[in-house]
Every structure is written in structure tokens, then in C-alpha cells.
Design a protein around this nucleic acid. Structure first.
Length: 574
RNA sequence: GCGCUCGUAGCUCAGUGGAUAGAGCAGGGGUCUUCUAAGCCCAGGGUCGCAGGUUCGAAUCCUGCCGAGCGCACCA
């Protein structure tokens, strides 16, 4: 879990091993009966043929805990209840306070991590469906970067394929200048729909579009230039949305499908040489082990379609091969919706069989559920269309502005605008990050913008309140106290919570279950408000005042850093 | 049919095989001459979908049902 947790575990583990005669899990966890409890003795009872309380007693006798624990008691069937010594808490907190990184060390062995996320389609609007991928991927990028890994953000832009025939022809119809104008306004859907409806209605147009696809794939110079125009304008628009969303994707992070075009022939060739390639119904496919279709027959991953074109399977394989071979990535993250699970698993399996994804390199599908509307169905606007991401951000900021005007009319315009942006955007992001990403979740303005509960505004407010204490008192908390003493129960509870930060961050870096970090931050904020209610800070004196200021400061920093890792800003006043 | 993700308070969600299953919202009752009441406190509210099994101990692991959503070859 964290610094304190790990220390206790390190002391208990050898004692358990000595008693069991082999390594045994102390099974340490937070407890309602003490600060921590170790339940390992119960699990060992049967294997050792001994009474669990006797085992616990022997463990307690062998474990070196005197300097860390005030009391160590055996309770119930054989639980070891540990109450941490105030001195130990004081010293650990002081260490944490001095540390710019709040006790979280940078990775000893930095990995190259490629994070595949966001992935909008050229000439198509970004909508709510892109939100989870963009938000979760961005949090992953920030977290892993902070932990010292080399992060490659791969925005797998949909910039290639048959739709570009009709898009380019439509562009020619309306003229380059007009097209650039429409696209730069962000009216991507109108552009796409216009092209689509002509394609569906007009045979001549359809024919032109088809020929244009051939020209595009053949590398025709003029066609490529027009295609590039579409891509460039769309990228500009996406970057504007990212900017508004406070997402750290930049123009350097676009690795669209077309990026892998030159690798497709070699990839398929290599699959062939490896003996993995099969022909099936005119298409070239690979049958990865362990996948069957509805008839129980082997399920193919199509790499080359019967018309000679490459399928997305080929692109995905080329991307893996490029990422492991050229970028030397050892961790590949795919922040993509759960429905694509099977496809990804198949791609991973083929990549493994081809030797492009072998240990220590590993691929991880960071899947997520759907965003639902109040009716429990896929979130759409009232008119039944998908909701533009840009509009969503506008509405969030507008709603946040109204709230702030109500609650703190004294803020000046500039501060208000800044706060509204952080609160509005933070609320949207936090909604995607605070619940188990594998489950669908309901999009609810009222709940995500509430100042109560597990929401971004609540955490932002908790932090702003702390900074307000410092402003009010005209103090700057010192960060190099020799000890941060805690005595009151509410202080202890907050302190122990703060010491768990490192463990939560470490765990989430692996699992990418950001709701655990979110839940942790909410617990910290809750623990702080209890502390704040019960323990005067500015009105305290001497060492107690210094310690409480330091504790408050540490809380603000944990909240600020935690929110920052989630990609959420925190205003100093609100 | 096979596979994946699920089923926990009225609602939205937590819950690493451990002691009495927790938050928030909504509803009820309190609480500001005192560091931001945008807060806090108290009480109520549960056959953890159902049935078996493993275990000293199961919301958690296994099996089978029921129910929901998604996927299962040339769109990504």
C-alpha cells in the first residue's frame, strides 16, 4: 500500500517465513480494530497443523516491530492487530514532507511504454465515445511519465482507408479553400455527411470516389496532397479540442494508420516466411491459437483482404512490430473500448506467434465500458445524435461558471474563468476516472459537478480550502520539519492515509485502475475534513501548529499531485 | 451456440479469501458570533441475481442456472 505498509510487511514477512518454514504472506491490510491487521496466521493454521493464535503469537515474538508499533495484539481467531507508534508516523511524515516526490521514487528500471489512445478519425467529429480513451490514456501518460518511464503517446489517428475517396472528391467539389474553412471550424460531421450522401445517391460520384481511392493507394501526387490537406486540417481541430480538454497530446503524437503503410508488405511477407499465413476465401489470414467462430471453426485475423487491400489487422500488427522493434517498447498499452477485446487479443496472439511480442515486452488492453445516458442507453444528444466533444466541454465550463458565480461571487473575472475551466473539465475527466473503467457508466451532469461526494470539484475544493488556511494565516508551511507529530485521532487517521500515497500510485501504475487513485484521493480529502473539523491549525501553537500546518501542506500536495496525475487541474482558490 | 464484461442500499458506485459489507446522492434529524457551512455530525436503509461446491472463514474462488450489455472474417 505505501511507505508504512511496506515497512510493516518487511518486518513481518521474515517472521512468518521463520514460523512457516517457507515464505508466507503476512496478509497485511488496514483494519477497523487497529491501524493495520495481519491475517497470515489463519491461512497457515491448516498447513502447519497448529492453532492460529499460537502461530500469531510466535510471529509476533519473532518480528522486529518495537520501533514501529505502539501495540501488537492478537485478537479473535488469530488476527495480529498493529497500532503504529506515533514516533514512527512522525518520522515517516517528515520524510514525505521533505520529498518533492512525496515518497514516490522514480522507477529503477525505466521502461519504454507506448500508449495507444484517443484515435479520432480524420474528417469525423470527436464525440463522447472518444472521451474515455482520451482521458484514461492521458492519465496513464502522465502517471507513467512521472514515474520516470519513457512514454510514447501514440494517437492512432484514423487517416486511411476507403472513405478518403469520397472525402477527397467532395473536397474537390467544394474547392480547397471552402473545405479548409469548414474543417477548421470544426464542422467535421457536416463535411463527412455531405460526402457520404453524395456517395450514396450519385453513381458518378461513387465511381470517382472509387478511382480516387486507387489513386490514393497508388501514391498519386495530387491525391496525396489533397489527402494531406484533410489530415492536416483535422489534426489542427483535434489539437484545439485537446487543448480545451487539457490533454497533453500534441502534433508530435499523431501516429495515424498511414504511418504504417510502408510496413504492411514486409509484415505480411514475414508472416508468410514464418509459415503463419493461410489463404481463406480469397483473403490472406492468420489463425491465432485459441480462437473459434460461432461454428466452432478457427477464427482468422485478416491481414490482406481478397481485393488485395490490407485490413486493420495488418496495421495493428505492423504497429506492434514497429513499437517493439524500432521503439524498443516493453509495454504496449491499448486504451480502447471493451468491445474490441477479442480483436486485440487475436492481434496480440499473432504478434506473439510471430515473435514480435516476446518477454519482457507485453501488451495490455486498457479496456473501458460505454458512456450511457440517463436512459441507460449509449449517451446521445436529445436529437439522437452523438454529442460533440467540443460541445461537451463548452457545456461543462458553462455549468461550472454558473455554479461558481452562485457560490463565490467575489472572484474576479479572470480567476473565475480559470476556476470554471478547471472545475468543468475536471468534472468530466473525473467522471471517467473515478469508477471501474471496465463497467459502463452513466453520464450525469449534476453528479459530476456536485461539490459533495467522490467528484473532482470536491477534491479541488478540499485543496483550495487548505491553501486558504495558509493565506489567512499569512504562513508558508515549512517542508523540512524533523518530525510531524500527530496525537489526535483525526490527525493519526489523516497521517496514515497520506502515507499510503506511494503504494496506491505504484499499484495503479501497473493496473491502470485509476478509480483506485481517485477513491484514495477522496479518502484523503475526507480524512482531511475530519481533521479540519477537530483540530485547529492556525489557532494551535508551537510544535503542534507547525505539525498541523505541515500535515495540511502534505494533504494539499497529495491532492494536487494526485489530481495532476489524473490530468485534472486544481485552482489555488475557488 | 461460443466468448468477453457485468449483476452489491431507492439511485450512482466502492469493496486485495478475513472480524459487524462501505461511500456519495436522494429522503429524515442536527450543526455557523470560532481557520471557506461549496463543509461536518447522527440515525434509517442490504436474502451482495439464484442454487450448489471448496474453505476454519466467500460479495470475493469453482460449477450450474437467471438476467443485462457487447463481440464472433474482408469497417476500425
Amino acid at each position: 500500500m505505501g511507505t508504512l505498509d511496506r515497512l510493516l510487511r518487511d518486518r513481518l514477512a521474515p517472521a512468518f517465513a521463520a514460523v512457516a518454514g517457507r515464505p508466507a504472506d503476512p496478509s497485511l491490510r488496514r483494519s477497523q480494530h487497529a491501524d493495520f491487521q495481519a491475517d497470515g496466521a489463519l491461512a497457515l493454521a491448516r498447513a502447519l497443523g497448529r492453532n492460529p493464535r499460537d502461530i500469531a503469537a510466535e510471529v509476533v515474538q519473532r518480528a522486529r516491530l518495537a520501533d514501529l508499533c505502539k501495540t501488537v495484539e492478537i485478537a479473535g481467531a488469530g488476527f495480529i492487530n498493529l497500532t503504529v507508534a506515533d514516533d514512527a508516523v512522525a518520522a515517516l511524515l517528515a520524510d514525505m514532507g521533505r520529498d518533492e516526490r512525496l515518497g514516490v521514487k522514480a522507477a529503477e528500471v525505466p521502461e519504454t511504454v507506448v500508449i495507444d489512445y484517443s484515435a479520432p478519425n480524420v474528417a469525423k467529429e470527436m464525440h463522447v465515445g472518444h472521451l474515455p480513451s482520451t482521458v484514461i490514456g492521458d492519465a496513464a501518460a502522465r502517471l507513467l511519465d512521472w514515474l520516470g518511464h519513457r512514454v510514447v503517446k501514440a494517437n492512432h489517428l484514423g487517416d486511411w482507408g476507403t472513405p478518403f475517396g469520397m472525402l477527397i472528391e467532395h473536397l474537390l467539389d467544394i474547392g480547397e479553400a471552402e473545405a479548409a474553412h469548414e474543417l477548421s471550424l470544426g464542422d467535421l460531421n457536416a463535411f463527412y455527411r455531405a460526402a457520404r450522401s453524395k456517395f450514396d445517391a450519385d453513381e458518378a460520384f461513387k465511381e470517382r470516389a472509387r478511382n480516387r481511392v486507387v489513386a490514393l493507394q497508388g501514391g498519386d501526387e495530387r491525391t496525396i496532397r489533397l489527402w494531406r490537406l484533410l489530415v492536416d486540417e483535422s489534426e489542427k481541430y483535434f489539437l484545439a479540442v485537446y487543448e480545451r480538454l487539457d490533454v497533453c497530446l500534441t502534433e508530435k503524437d499523431f501516429f495515424g494508420e498511414s504511418f504504417y503503410n510502408d510496413m504492411l508488405v514486409p509484415v505480411v511477407g514475414e508472416l508468410d516466411r514464418l509459415g503463419l499465413l493461410r489463404e481463406s476465401d480469397g483473403a490472406q489470414v492468420v489463425f491465432p491459437a485459441g480462437f473459434t467462430n460461432r461454428d466452432g471453426n478457427p477464427l482468422p485475423l485478416i491481414v490482406r483482404k481478397s481485393d488485395g487491400g490490407f485490413g486493420y489487422g495488418a496495421t495493428d500488427l505492423a504497429a506492434i512490430r514497429y513499437r517493439t522493434r524500432e521503439l524498443h517498447a516493453t509495454r504496449l498499452l491499448y486504451v480502447i473500448g471493451l468491445p474490441q477485446r477479442q480483436h486485440l487479443e487475436m492481434v496480440f496472439e499473432v504478434a506473439r506467434e510471430a515473435g514480435w511480442l516476446s518477454p519482457p515486452a507485453r501488451a495490455q488492453h486498457v479496456g473501458f465500458g460505454s458512456v450511457l445516458g440517463p436512459d441507460g442507453k449509449i449517451f446521445r444528444s436529445r436529437s439522437g445524435e452523438t454529442v460533440k466533444l467540443a460541445d461537451l466541454v463548452d457545456e461543462a465550463v458553462a455549468r461550472a461558471t454558473t455554479l461558481i458565480e452562485e457560490k463565490n461571487p467575489d472572484l474576479d473575472e479572470a480567476t473565475k474563468a480559470n476556476v470554471a475551466r478547471m472545475v468543468g473539465v475536471g468534472a468530466i475527466k473525473y467522471a471517467d476516472l473515478s469508477s471501474d473503467r471496465t463497467r459502463d457508466h452513466v453520464f450525469d451532469w449534476a453528479r459530476m459537478l456536485s461539490f459533495d461526494g467522490n467528484t473532482a470539484p470536491y477534491l479541488q475544493y478540499a485543496r483550495a480550502r487548505i491553501l486558504s488556511i495558509f493565506r489567512r494565516g499569512g504562513v508558508t508551511p515549512v517542508r523540512d520539519l524533523a518530525r510531524i507529530t500527530v496525537t489526535e485521532p483525526a490527525e493519526r487517521a489523516l497521517a496514515i492515509e497520506l502515507l499510503a500515497f506511494e503504494g496506491v500510485v505504484t499499484e495503479v501504475a501497473e493496473s491502470l485502475d485509476f478509480h483506485k487513485l481517485a477513491g484514495y484521493l477522496h479518502q484523503v480529502a475526507t480524512a482531511f475534513t475530519a481533521f479540519y473539523e477537530n483540530c485547529p491549525v492556525l489557532r494551535a501553537e508551537g510544535e503542534v501548529r507547525e505539525s498541523r500546518l505541515a500535515l495540511s501542506d502534505l494533504t494539499a500536495r497529495v491532492l494536487g499531485r494526485g489530481l495532476g496525475l489524473l490530468g485534472i487541474g486544481a485552482p489555488d482558490r475557488m
